[in-house]
């Protein structure tokens, strides 16, 4: 839960500090990229709270590495 709260606080801060000026200056590309990244962040944070265990990228990389390099174990 802490994660989500912190992410939301940071996001609100970002919106005030960065996104609103971008909107006012009509820098649409930056604006949408920014908002998109924020949305991803919030979605990830919510998933982290909902999911019991996030899939761990290190595991995937490990499998790929073992596959490519043919490592034992």
């Amino acid at each position: 839960m802490t994660t989500l709260i912190m992410v939301i606080i940071i996001c609100v801060g970002m919106i005030i500090v960065d996104v609103i000026p971008l909107y006012k200056n009509q820098q649409w590309l930056s604006f949408f990229v920014y908002l998109g990244l924020l949305t991803v962040a919030i979605v990830v944070a919510i998933t982290m709270d909902v999911c019991f265990q996030m899939p761990c990228p290190a595991d995937w990389f490990k499998k790929i590495i073992i596959l490519i390099w043919g490592l034992e174990d």
């Binding site: 802490t2 709260i5 912190m6 606080i9 940071i10 609100v12 801060g13 005030i16 500090v17 000026p21």
Partner: peptide, 19 residues
């Protein structure tokens, strides 16, 4: 703009400090 940021930082810390 920095003032807003500082305010937010403080606002952000308050729940953390109390929670």
């Amino acid at each position: 703009m920095k003032k807003v940021l500082v305010c937010l930082l403080i606002l952000g810390f308050i729940p953390m400090i109390f929670s």
